[in-house]
Amino acid sequence: MSTAETLILTNARVVTPDTTLDNATVLVRDGLIAAVDEGRSTVPGAVDLEGDYLLPGLIEMHTDHMEKHFQPRPGVLWPSPLAAVTAHDAQIAAAGITTVFDAISCGQYDEGSMRRQMLADQIAAVKHADAEGVLRVEHLLHLRCEVCDPCVVEIFEPYRADPLVRLVSLMDHTPGQRQWSDLSKLRQFDSDKGWSDEQFNARVEQRLADQDRYAHKHRALILSMARTREDIVLATHDDTTEAHVDEALAEGATIAEFPTTYTAAAKAHAAGMKTILGAPNVVRGGSHSGNVSAIDLARDGVLDGLSSDYVPSSLVQAAFHLSDLIDLPLPAGVAMVSANVADMVGLPDRGRIAAGKKADLVRVARVDGVPLPREVWRDGRRVC
């Protein structure tokens, strides 16, 4: 994407890493932030933001939102991968996200699953759309490796050296532990499958057998492949116990994604791992799976960042909601969806409104208290 030469955004409430500057001005030159100044610019052509907030472009490190465009209904694959990925991209941009890690599942889970085909289609479509210059935001890949799945290693292996793959997470969704410690929650989640109790129980037994057979071996193989790349960040998923965190630390993971308990989150944070919880958890006031509250973790200083997970618009809402609810300074709330995430995924060139950083920016208005993105710039060019 080419960059605009010069852009002046003025009369804005600019959220910097340290404070919020009222009636401030941001100068962009050649795709980078050149200056952040207090006071309103009188330069002809300056864009008046009318007192709205100006935030750094949001950074999303785990969303399965793209999958919904490729498979909008169970058993239905959308016929145009390019149309699917650009529709996803447009919604991501409209949410104020300028860098997205598309989280793609490496694992079939069930016989007849379309996920293996969708993985190949999604990666190819992202590359196609980027080559055609039709993407609004920057797309990178987060491969979510279901270590108990019989096919995970052969699914992951072809993409181990792909330069778009920058984040790998180790997941274990075996019933009875981690996210699905409460089987009734899993039964509710799978209600659309129409399984009888007998079928559900048989599926649980099969998943337990798969865990016993594959989990240890597959974790080791995925780790071995990921470690050949210095630019791949490793995360673990749904850690629940201190033993889970100890395992993650021994494996070299630096991010704890969606720890399900306060104990696991606190242990990971104290050990130097970065903790990520869902922004919907903040907006809804709790986890839909009955897991630990993101608000409680933020209040106690053990939450480092947020992911929109399944609702892109939740990212900006959560940043403001935390500021309103627990008196967290707005720059700290915004950092949880920008700078903090940029640092943990190895992208120090973005996520802050500061001189020298990428001019990825989002204008946000509050309407009835709800933060709504109005304009988005990537590399100094307006994309939404």
Rank of each mutant, 00 (worst) to 15 (best):
E5R: 14
L7K: 05
L9Y: 11
T10C: 06
V15E: 08
V15C: 13
P17D: 07
D18L: 14
L27S: 15
L27I: 15
V28N: 12
V28W: 00
R29N: 09
D30Y: 05
G31F: 04
I33P: 10
V36I: 03
G39E: 01
G39P: 10
V43H: 12
G45C: 09
V47S: 10
L54S: 14
P56Y: 05
G57C: 03
E60V: 00
E60K: 00
M61E: 11
M61N: 15
Q71W: 03
R73W: 04
P74F: 01
G75A: 04
V76M: 10
L82G: 11
A83H: 09
A84V: 12
V85K: 05
T86E: 04
D89E: 05
I92F: 02
T99P: 09
F101N: 02
F101V: 06
Y109A: 15
D110C: 13
M114R: 08
R115S: 14
R115L: 11
Q122M: 08
Q122L: 04
H128T: 05
A131D: 15
E132S: 12
H142Q: 06
C145S: 03
E146S: 12
E154A: 02
F156R: 01
F156L: 14
R160W: 04
D162F: 06
L164I: 03
P175Q: 10
W180C: 00
L183P: 01
S184M: 11
K185H: 11
L186W: 08
L186D: 03
R187Y: 07
F189D: 11
D190A: 14
K193W: 15
Q199E: 15
E205R: 15
D210R: 13
H218F: 10
R219W: 06
L221C: 06
L221K: 13
L223G: 15
S224T: 08
T228C: 14
T228F: 05
D231W: 00
L234Y: 00
A235V: 10
A235Y: 09
T236R: 00
T241L: 01
T241P: 00
A243N: 00
D246W: 04
G252I: 03
A256F: 01
F258R: 03
A270P: 06
G272Q: 05
V282F: 01
G286C: 02
S293D: 13
D296G: 07
L297K: 06
L297Y: 04
L297E: 00
R299K: 14
R299Y: 12
D300Y: 06
L303Y: 05
L303T: 08
D309K: 02
S313T: 07
V316Y: 04
L322N: 03
L322H: 03
L322E: 10
D324F: 07
D324K: 13
L325K: 13
L325I: 04
L325W: 08
L328F: 09
L330A: 11
L330H: 06
G333I: 03
V334M: 03
M336Q: 06
M336S: 10
S338H: 10
A342T: 05
M344A: 10
M344T: 10
L347P: 11
L347M: 13
P348H: 09
D349N: 09
I353A: 15
A354V: 11
G356R: 04
K358N: 14
A359G: 10
D360I: 00
V362W: 13
A365Q: 15
P373E: 13
R381D: 12
R382M: 12
